Amino acid sequence: MHLCYFDENKHSPDNPYFFIGGLLIPDSKALEFEKTLAQIAFNFFGSSSLTVHNEFHGKELFHGKGIAKGRKMEDRVQVFRDVANFVTCNQIPVRLVCINVDRHRSKYAYPMPAYRLGLMLILERYCEYLDKVDDLGLVFGDYEADEVTSAVVDFSEYKSQGKTPMYSGRPLGRLLDTVYFTHSHHSRFLQVADLLVYMAGRYENMQSAPDKWHEKEVAAAWEKIKASGNVYIQRWP
């Protein structure tokens, strides 16, 4: 069994790219991986408890806001480095979908909403990996109140119809039961998904090379993850 976690970013007029995705964890390694992430959390927060006060958020860590307000830049950057080491040393597969929302909307007369399309595509990517390793999976997402119901209904329909509705749609039979949603402060794995999506959203479509020290360091953490050979990003359209 694999546990599949995903989060997403928010596109804006200044950033038309919508990212969704995360990581897949073999259940046999879940306890070991949880201990590693708990140690990373303890090193930064002084506590490993799963509360909103001890939650990793990529945006807040990078900008020194929220839970990271007042923390030294070196300490904040170290979290990105530690997560990059966690992903690469354990050869954790990362799957992401990048949707250029402006191009998507201009290409289709009736474009599917970015979240709905992105979720469908990332479920396909998870199933591709599960086919490769001949295993089953459970899917967990960050709780978004306005998306949960439609996501669960869509997933149920894809399974009952035998495949996703794209022209090259694929079956999702390796994903069991439903899509489970929980608040990210209740799951370190969802928090890792948050950091992965944040780094991808920040650096995959960057127009110029990073110049500030912390920008270079976090970009290097992302490049290290990509260099592991376990990252696949689907771009749409």
Rank of each mutant, 00 (worst) to 15 (best):
C127W: 03
G173V: 12
G137Q: 05
H185Y: 09
L130R: 03
L130V: 01
P165L: 01
R174W: 01
F155M: 07
R174S: 13
L175G: 05
S184F: 00
Y158Q: 00
M166F: 13
Y143D: 07
G141K: 02
D154F: 01
G137L: 05
K159I: 12
F140M: 04
F155V: 04
E147F: 10
A151H: 05
E144Q: 15
K163W: 01
Y129I: 12
H183Q: 10
H186Y: 11
A145C: 10
E144S: 10
L176Y: 10
V139E: 06
C127P: 05
K163D: 08
T149F: 14
D142H: 05
V153M: 08
F140P: 02
S160N: 09
A145W: 09
G141N: 01
E128D: 14
D177Y: 10
H183E: 08
S160Q: 13
E147W: 05
G169C: 07
D131M: 13
S150F: 05
R170V: 15
G162W: 08
E157H: 08
L136H: 10
H185V: 01
P171E: 09
L138Y: 04
R174G: 08
G141H: 03
K132L: 13
F140T: 04
V139R: 01
S184Q: 06
Y129K: 12
V179G: 03
D146H: 11
Y167T: 15
L138P: 05
K163P: 02
G141W: 01
L130C: 08
A151S: 15
K159E: 07
C127Y: 08
S184N: 00
L175W: 07
V133R: 01
L172A: 10
Q161I: 09
D146E: 14
S168T: 14
E128Y: 13
V139T: 09
T178F: 00
V148A: 10
R174P: 12
V179H: 06
G137M: 03
H183G: 01
T182W: 06
L136W: 05
D142W: 02
L138G: 07
K159P: 03
S160E: 08
A151C: 06
D135G: 07
L136Y: 13
C127N: 15
R170E: 14
L130I: 03
P171S: 15
L136E: 10
T182G: 10
V139D: 04
G141P: 09
S168M: 15
V152C: 11
S156C: 07
M166W: 12
G162P: 00
L130P: 02
G169K: 02
D142K: 02
Y167Q: 15
T149K: 13
L176V: 11
H186N: 08
V148M: 09
S184I: 00
Y143T: 07
